[in-house]
Design a protein around this nucleic acid. Sequence first.
DNA 1: GAGATTTCTTGACAAGTGTCAAACAAAGTC
DNA 2: GACTTTGTTTGACACTTGTCAAGAAATCTC
Lengths: 214, 214
Amino acid sequence: MVAVTSANAAEQERPARVSGIDKIERRRVALAESALKTLGELGYARTSLREIANNSEFTHGVVHYYFRDKIDLISYCVRYYKTKCARRYDEVVETATSGEELVTGFLAKMTQTLVDETPMHKLWYDLRAQSMFEEQLRPDVEAIDKLLEEMIWRILGRYADLTATTPTVDAPTAYALIDGLFEQAVVGYAANPDKTPDLLTDRLLQVLPKLVAA
Amino acid sequence: MVAVTSANAAEQERPARVSGIDKIERRRVALAESALKTLGELGYARTSLREIANNSEFTHGVVHYYFRDKIDLISYCVRYYKTKCARRYDEVVETATSGEELVTGFLAKMTQTLVDETPMHKLWYDLRAQSMFEEQLRPDVEAIDKLLEEMIWRILGRYADLTATTPTVDAPTAYALIDGLFEQAVVGYAANPDKTPDLLTDRLLQVLPKLVAA
DNA sequence: GAGATTTCTTGACAAGTGTCAAACAAAGTC
DNA sequence: GACTTTGTTTGACACTTGTCAAGAAATCTC
């Protein structure tokens, strides 16, 4: 069970017996997972606490027992989510023994998560947009963005190693470029689920070689 | 006065005297402009029709007199907005006489609109995210995305001409890359308005040369 | 200027929201 | 087994939302 730590320090208030503290955490995780399902389908704006409760085995009162308010819940969900998403390519990075193998594995994993976890990605881009208007979301969004940037940077660094080259762009740039392509794919996936993964692969193949040089 | 045409054909219902038809259009544009101001500040989700009316010289009933419902208004706003945004770089493209001049002009215009029209850009990325959940927004969002892609492609094509090179990526890829950088800047602008424009410039300078080759 | 038409204001409606509190059930403590 | 603590349900609250309709005001037509 992952202990989701706060990015803006604000929930060591509910006392709770010491023996039950991770039972509480378990419940919060269950709530969060259920909430994430609903959020991924409806998006941030259209998801109400009651809707979250309805799509779970709990009642709407329970939500409020475990979370101070809506932002607290969403914020917790986001932090929970980030612990799962940024390590997605680690195995590929560690096991690949050639540049080509790394690229192949990376592309496979990326198109796979595009298809398998579309709602989560939609939610992420939604939340990042919301963070421009809702200040309370910003710290969490920034933290995830940083995590994703590091993820991309690890991949690119390893790719450079394997191909005896060096990156030609810095980490934020590399992240923005690849994220731009991926977001385009996530948005396009709704309209064209069949062709989008191949298009993403094709476009990444156009770009990746340009990000390194001897 | 711009006649905003419908992307999903659905507003030739209100009869209205022939002489007054563009008076109606004028009112709609005034409403739309006011709505865009509010939308840019609050974002799609947090903007209500009443809030739009309050920030305008009209009452909330008028909004309903000129627009069937909320989506109709937002949709109109989006279409109105797009007529203004996609021609932003045309002058630079047409007047530049060297690659360097084009790049300089392009970067200047882009950082300028980042700073001067932040709310509009925030709204655009918000709306694009919402379109993943709200199907009714999709046609309009797709249309704008296409317009922006063509805009980027014109710039890159001209840049290639001026430098006697050819683009090394296709239009959707080029758009996704540059848009990724710009979105990163828009999101980052809230947290760091001082440094973000320079960072954007720096990153674009890293990328642009890689998008063409002899 | 009378009468018809268009435009706008106002107030209401049903539905949905986040929040909370009081009653109830379960579990743990001595 | 009584009693306290913890967990859950239920129903209510104040408020906001989109939508609409009835009537007042302004405008146009003749």
